[in-house]
């Protein structure tokens, strides 16, 4: 049985439909990259899985259990954590408090605790008592990643880790992924930076206008095919 599955998943912002029947599966230990242009529905997909956007119960299944109707906090407690787009650290919490609150809803034991997060991102150790929002963009992203890891998630949703960061910083952040995968988490990575995403993922899905237009392993997919799926052009 798949760890996480979406069945004909739709999402709406008011009257605006963002997703048109997404069918996805994520196996235990797998890393799935979702790529696509701006407005393709990638973030809406993660927001729906994480419970920020509501969907019918049966359209999202965690080990076969319907969870689409649950609130975001309930979904987090079931072991699905999210690194939100734009990092969204809490400005009134210090770095360490930002990490600690990551474990608020899910208190089950696992590999990740404060020490192991600091080992993963040594740059944070010295700044543990500073306000999270006083850090550089890359460091803030480290806090956001560590915060999500603190709940020892079975599924980790990563929304645009590279957003607004310099290439060298992005490379640095992606170097943490092997260790994250080793800790047992399965990942869905939404990313604009196709190269980084393909490097760490087992499978790639391309989205356009709220639909999945292409999927396969990174080896199967040529750049041309991705371009076609990205921009909706028919290749001659």
């Amino acid at each position: 049985m798949a760890l996480l599955e979406t069945r004909d998943l739709t999402a709406f912002y008011g009257n605006f439909q963002a997703l048109f029947g997404i069918n996805l599966t994520l196996s235990e230990g797998e890393t799935l990259a979702i790529i696509g242009a701006n407005g393709a529905g990638k973030s809406s997909l993660l927001r729906t899985i994480s419970g920020v956007l509501k969907s019918p119960a049966e359209s999202i299944l965690l080990e076969g259990m319907p969870i689409g109707h649950l609130d975001a906090d309930e979904i987090t407690s079931l072991g699905i954590a999210m690194i939100p787009e734009g990092r969204r650290l809490f400005p009134s919490l210090s770095v360490e408090e930002n990490l600690e609150i990551g474990a608020y809803g899910n208190k089950q034991a696992g590999y990740w605790n404060l020490n192991n997060v600091y080992d993963l991102f040594p740059a944070l150790t010295k700044k543990r008592n500073q306000p999270g929002t006083s850090l550089s963009g890359g460091e803030q992203q480290m806090v956001a990643m560590g915060r999500a890891l603190m709940s020892n998630p079975r599924v980790l949703l990563c929304d645009e880790i590279s957003l607004g960061l310099a290439p060298v910083v992005i490379k640095n952040l992606y170097e943490a992924f092997p260790e994250i995968k080793n800790s047992g988490a399965s990942l869905i990575i939404v990313e604009q930076d196709i190269v980084q995403a393909m490097k760490v993922s087992d499978r790639v899905c391309c989205m356009m206008e709220g639909n999945i237009t292409l999927s396969g392993t990174p080896d199967e997919l040529s750049m041309d095919m991705i371009h076609a799926a990205y921009f909706g052009e028919e290749q001659s």
Binding site: S50, G51, V52, D71, A72, D73, T76, S77, A81, M82, P84, R88, F90, P91, S92, L93, E97, I101, G102, Y104, G105, N106, R147, S151
Partner: peptide
């Protein structure tokens, strides 16, 4: 404090 800052993100931490 987290809820005061940003209730949606707080709910992603398991805070209701």
């Amino acid at each position: 404090r987290a809820t005061s800052d940003d209730p949606v993100t707080a709910s992603l931490m398991g805070v209701k």
